[in-house]
Each structure stands twice: as C-alpha cells, then as structure tokens.
Design a protein around this nucleic acid. Structure first.
Length: 765
DNA sequence: CTGCACATGTTTTTT
DNA sequence: ACATGTGCAG
C-alpha cells in the first residue's frame, strides 16, 4: 500500500506526517500543547506495523498506565489485533516484567516485591532509628529524596562514598551518615527480595550494563523500534537505559522521543529536560531528525497567546512558536475573591452561569488547583448546589490503611522475605508481638544479613512471645500454602477471614469503620474480577495471588476506567497534564500558593512553577477562568497573599475582569497584577538552549528589525524572522486573518515552518 | 505490650 | 486543620 492510500496519514498535518513516516534512525519530536502528540505517536506505531515491522519488536514507553492503555487502544483502531503484541507500557511496568524474567541474574527472586514510597520511608525510618540518629536531622523524606536522586543518577552506595561533593553536602546539611543509610537501605531491600520504584529502573540498567548471559543483546534485538512519550519527564537513569537499548554496534538507532520542554513539571522528582538537549547531541551524528509540532488544535488563540506570553518569562527553552487557528475565542476571565470561601462560591456560581449560557456538560468543566488541600471548599459548594463532581488525586485506594494491611498479608504469603509487609502485620491484629520484639528481630536480621522471616523460628524469646511468634509463623505458612495452590480470589478470602483482620474491622461500627469494611470488600471484588478476567484470556494465564499482587503494585487511582457519568473534574494541575476540557478554572492564583512558597527561593523552582501554570492554562479549549483570593486559611491560620505574579505576565488584551465583582472592586483598587508590566522578550524567546543553531544563521537584529504588515507578505518573498532568521515563503493558504505561510528557513533545525501571518513578525527583504 | 497525650510538619506525583 | 508518629504511663 502506498503512503497516499493510508487513511491515517491523511489525518495528519505536514509536520506530523513527516514525524510519523520517519521510520528509521533517531527522531526527536518537540510537541507543543494540543499539537496532536498522541496522535503522532500512535500513528507512528501503526505505520511501522503497516510497513511490515513485527509489532513485538516495537517498544513504546510512557509514564502512566493510562497513557499506555490509550496508546494501545488507538493503535488497535488502526491496525487491529496486531496492536496487542506491541510492548507498550510504563517504564516501570515494562522493566518489572523483564526483571521478573531475568531476576536470577541479579540475585533476586522472580516474585520480588515492589516497595512503594511508604514502604521505602518505613525502611528508612527503621534504619535511622537503629543507627540512633536524630529523626529531625535525618528527615525521612529528605533522606529518601536524596537516595532516590542518587539512584537516578547511577550513583551506587560505593560511588556515593567516593563522591567528595555529595559527602561534603551531607556534612554541611548535618547528615554525615547519609551514605551509610543508603548502603543499609539497599542491603535491606535486597534481602527482603524487594525493589523500590527507582530499583525497577536501576536494576534494569544494571542488567543491561553488566550483561549477564548476553541479556543486553537479547533485548537490543527484541526492541528494534523504541519510542518514548513525555520525554521531558524522564530522568537521567531512564535515558541511560534507553541508550543502552538503542546504541550498539551496527544499531539502526530506531529511536523516537516525543516531548515538550515547556511542559516539564516533574523536575522535583528528578526529571530533566537536559535529556532532550543531550538526545539531540548524542544522536546528531546518526542523522537525527527534529520535528516541531507548533500548531495547537485545542485552544482558542487568546488562550494560546496567553500561554506563550507566560512561558516566555522562563530562562531557557527550546525555541518554538505555538499558534492556533481556532479564532480568538473568549477572553480569559480573572476573578477576585476576598477569601477562600468566597472563591469557592464565586467559582461554583460561574460554573452554573457558564453551563447555562454555553450549554456545557459537567464533564466539560475542570477546576484545577496547585495543592490537593484546596479541593475541599469547592466540594462543599458543589455539593450544596447539587452538581456532581469527582475529586482526583489525594489518597489512592491502595494507600488506605485497611487495604494496605490486607495487601501486606498477601505480600508475605507470596514473598515471605518482604520485611515491610512483615512489620506491618506481625502484630495486626494484636497478638502480643510488640515493638521491642520486632526491634530485636530486626537487629539480628541486620547482623546476620538474613530476612527477618528466617529468624522467627531461630531466635530465643520469652515463652509467651515464643508462642505468639509460632502462632504467627504457622498462620503465614497456611497462607503461603493457599497462595501457592488456589486462585487469587480463594486465597484472598481465606486470608481475609483467617487473619482476623476483617473481624477486627467489623467490630468497629462507626461510619469510618463501616467504610473500611466496605473498602476491604471492594478490594476482594477487585480480586475476583482479576481472576475472571485472567481466566477469560488465553489458557494457562496466571490467576495466582502472586500475579494479582504484581498486577496492582504499579497501579494507581488515576488508572481507573472510564468517565461515563457526567461530573465536574477537580484535580491538581499536575494530574491534569495530558487532559483537556472545554472550560477550565485555575484557582488559588496567589503568590506563595501558585507559585508555591517552596519553589520561590530558586530560579529553577520558579521556572518549574511557571511551566506548571503553562500546563494549567493550556488544558482549556474555549473558556479559561483564573481566580485568586486575597485571604485564605492555610495550616489553620488566615494568610493574606498577593495575586500571583503569573497573572501579570498575561497581556491585558486577552483578559476580562469578571463581571459581578465590580461591587467588591473599587476603582483605584485594581488588582495589582496590571501594575506590573511584564518584562518580556519581544515575541521571541529569552535565552536559548541552542546556541549552535544561531551560529552561522543570519539572525535578525532586534534593533533594526522592522516587521512588515502581514498582509503584504506573498508567496516567493524572502523574509526575515526574529528567531528563525532568513527564509523564503513557499506558499500561503487561508484567507484574511487566518493566512498561514509555509516558510523555508534554511538554517533552522526544522526548516519548513508553518507560520500564522497574523502573529508572525516578518520583515520583507 | 497497649493506649493515650503530645509534637511535628506539612507542594506537586508516578511508578 | 489535620494527620501521623513518638514518648510515656499503666
């Protein structure tokens, strides 16, 4: 079939199509918000398959299960059931799958446990306590972050000890023993047969690096085409793994990464846009092709332009100009409230009005906030007005205490070495094995470097404790037996009953207590469903409790299925990434909240907050409302905050003060964001990552640059662009305000650009 | 070992 | 405000 005959290729614009059909060699796609990034990725996979690449040789890595699932579904729509053989999944889930197969090479059991963040913290707390270190100096979260960042930068405990900088930093921050904690932590995870989230990446790297039994070549050959979504969110370690898979002798280097530096909002957990820059560098000599998706199909131009005006204030970015041809649309509304409560009321009033006037469904509307704690007030008013809503984020189902407790029993039935599970349930329900006993076992485990479980029968205890421990060991052995021989559901029911957990919960007849029993029931229902779904599949599928544990340990609430009902979405800006809504309310636009006070100290922090705001506003298709309150309760105290500086970065011609608030807003008391004219670099971009492109390029001099009236620009003309330099107009389409020129910039890295004449600053030469 | 009072530290989040 | 963890008395 020729490319012309492929229907899916006709659904793409020029740049998108180029990115999709650039099959071999390295490809970087820089994709602005709403530019059809997902479409490019999925069609690219579909195209590879159509061109004869076996689907099982394609690896597509994403960050969320949801993104992976959506990608698979959409590939399926184009190529049918062949899509099932594509390796599409999150970094963590794909690597966990591989690691279970190769575990023996790393000295791990294939049924290793995956420790979540709580488990990691708890291991660290125990270590800090046992080392008699002060919990204040060794704040668990800080320690965990530091260890995580070491792992993400390929620094083992041994390398850490040799790293003068790191050791010095620890001395200065009064944590001289951090390296030892790190070392102990790694040893404990190992002996517990457990990997934390970073290990799933680190051990994968280790596997490819040390290359036991030629596994590296095995996976290099298996994954002949590799794709990475949201590349700006990858950390150093993830990129190193990708390189291991893709770079080798005679490698075709079929790697395609897609990302947007402006939407990088996870630097706080190690993501670095340096990867995008390194990628260009690392693959330069292998004929990298760079495509920039700059047309935004999602939002009206008031919104797109506001977004551009905001992001331009960041220091470093990959130059690009996002544009929309959806028309101006509505202006952005800015609402002021005198308190957080009033903000809640105003927003819900505005939602009612908007629903009426524009016939919106609830599902068309989202309220986005910086911190999850802000949801409460909106919930109150939405409930009062009887508007259905759903809060995303916060505590996940699998993080609830009672659920974790029962899961801990499951975990230990599958992997008895799992020490976090053991600690959690050894005295739950109370069976007379208290802290001092657990401490004793833990200390011995450390001394002998054996799992705590192995020591239970061996250590000497007073008779009463001995009895209790024997009873516990016997109980767990029965559970192990069940887990090994029956289906996940049967084993789960057995454990829930025999452990006494459910009975203990049932005796609590308070509302919360009943809720907990309810949660246990839905957990059990979920397991039943799991078993049935597995049984539906091919014969020989695994319905064991071990398989169930593995299937959920990388799941979160966000992965829950389907929006069939009509509700308003409440979520943090972070969770909103990748989503879009006709109408978006970004609330709490105040200094110290958005931008967060935690990030205001450093320029990097501020830039990340700004990118976050960029993500927030670019979620909106047609209506965008920004709201702030001059006072709000925080940590139990009333705080007074200025409106967010980000508001002042939007040009006033995109903005409309909310009607109805005139009464509270006296003349001369205008919100102060319009007093601060934003300092903005022309229409272009400040500071520029890529000096090298600027080198031999005829750059426009801002002092002498005089843009010509856009209606004078015609096909064939030579023009000068502030950012892209000299170019030739290849063609023009559209009419009047919507004229779009395709211009060839000879020195640009993506030479052919489509530029909206209405906004472009071009000088006729 | 258990239960209760007090202290503490609060972004964002996927895996 | 609030949840979670720790210290101390019984």
């Amino acid at each position: 079939m020729s490319n012309e005959a492929k229907i899916y290729l006709q659904q793409l614009n020029d740049v998108q199509r180029q990115a999709v059909t650039a099959m071999d060699g390295p490809v970087l796609v820089v994709a602005g918000p709403g530019s059809g990034k997902t479409r490019v990725l999925t069609y690219r996979v579909a195209h590879l398959i159509e061109e004869g690449v076996p689907p099982w040789e394609i690896l597509a890595l994403t960050f969320t299960n949801k993104a992976a699932r959506e990608m698979k579904e959409r590939i399926q729509q184009v190529v049918g059931p062949r899509a099932d053989s594509v390796w599409a999944g999150t970094f963590h889930s794909i690597f966990a799958r591989i690691l279970r197969v190769e575990a023996a090479h790393l000295g791990y059991p294939s049924n290793f446990t995956i420790y979540d963040t709580d488990d990691s913290s708890s291991v660290l707390r125990a270590i800090i306590k046992e080392m008699n270190l002060s919990p204040e100096a060794y704040n668990v979260n800080a320690v965990r972050a530091r260890i995580s960042s070491a792992k993400s930068n390929l620094i083992t405990p041994a390398l850490y000890a040799k790293d003068q900088d790191l050791m010095q930093q620890d001395l200065l921050s009064k944590r001289p023993h951090l390296q030892q904690i790190y070392e102990k932590y790694v040893a404990r995870c190992k002996r517990a047969g457990a990997m934390d989230f970073d290990d799933l990446l680190y051990r994968m790297f280790e596997l490819l690096h040390t290359n036991p039994a030629g596994v590296r070549e095995k996976y290099q050959q298996r994954f002949r085409y590799v794709m990475v979504d949201e590349f700006q969110d990858t950390n150093h370690l993830q990129y190193e793994i990708v390189k291991k898979l893709v770079i080798y002798d005679n490698s075709p280097r079929n790697i395609c990464v897609v990302g947007d530096d402006a939407q990088s909002i996870y630097a706080f957990r190690g993501a670095t846009i340096q990867n995008i820059l390194d990628f260009e560098q690392d693959f330069q000599k292998h004929g990298i092709r760079v495509y920039k998706l700059e047309q935004n199909y999602r939002s009206t131009s008031h919104i797109v332009q506001a977004a551009n005006e905001v992001i331009v204030n960041n220091r470093r970015q990959i130059p690009k100009s996002i544009w929309s041809h959806k028309g101006e649309g509505e202006r952005i509304r800015v609402q002021k409230a005198l308190s957080d409560t009033e903000e809640g009321k105003r927003i819900v009033d505005a939602i009612l009005e908007q629903k009426n006037r524009h016939h919106l469904h609830n599902r068309d509307i989202a309220i986005l906030y910086r911190t999850n704690a802000q949801s409460r007030i909106f919930e109150e008013y939405l409930r009062r007005y009887n508007i259905p809503y759903r809060v995303f984020g916060g505590l996940s189902f699998y993080q609830r205490k009672e659920v974790k407790d029962l899961l801990a029993y499951f975990r230990i039935a599958v992997n008895a070495k799992d020490e976090e599970a053991l600690r959690r349930i050894i005295n739950l329900p109370k069976r007379g094995i208290g802290n001092s006993t657990v401490e004793k076992i833990s200390l011995q485990a450390d001394a002998q470097n054996l799992p705590m479980w192995d020591l239970l029968p061996k250590l000497p205890f007073p008779a009463r404790t001995r009895n209790a421990i024997d009873g516990f060991v016997h109980l767990i052995e029965r559970f192990q037996q069940q887990a090994a021989t029956t289906s996940a559901y049967q084993a789960a029911i057995f454990i829930a009953k025999q452990s006494g957990l459910v009975d203990a919960l049932k005796s609590d007849t308070t509302v919360e207590g009943m809720g907990r029993v309810e949660n246990i029931n839905s957990l059990l229902d979920g397991i039943k469903e799991f078993v049935e779904n597995q049984a539906d599949g091919e014969p020989g599928t695994d319905t064991s409790l071990a398989a169930y544990i593995q299937s959920i340990s990388l799941l979160t609430d966000q992965d829950e299925q389907a929006q069939t009902e009509d509700y308003i979405t409440l979520m943090s800006v972070h969770s909103a990434k990748g989503l879009e809504f006709p109408s978006v309310f970004v609330v709490g636009m105040e200094e110290k909240l958005f931008p967060s006070f935690m990030a205001m100290e450093t320029p990097e922090g501020m830039d990340e907050e700004r990118r976050l705001f960029y993500v927030a506003i670019t979620r909106a298709e047609s209506f965008l409302t920004l709201s702030y309150a001059t006072s709000r309760y925080r940590y139990g105290q009333m705080r007074y905050n200025e409106p967010s500086r980000f508001l002042s970065e939007i040009e006033l011609n995109h903005v409309e003060m909310s009607g109805g608030m005139g009464s509270t807003l006296m003349p001369g008391m205008e919100p102060d964001f319009d007093r601060r004219p934003a300092e903005r670099a022309r229409s272009g971009v400040q500071g520029n990552f890529k000096q090298k492109t600027a080198n031999n390029q005829l750059m426009a001099d801002p002092k002498t640059f005089k843009p010509s009236p856009s209606d004078q620009i015609q096909t064939g003309m030579k023009v000068l662009h502030l950012k892209f330099g000299e170019g030739k107009v290849l063609s023009i389409d559209g009419a009047r305000d919507n004229r779009v020129a395709t211009i060839f910039f000879k020195d640009s890295d993506a030479p052919e650009r489509r530029i909206m004449l209405k906004f472009a600053k071009l000088q006729i030469l």
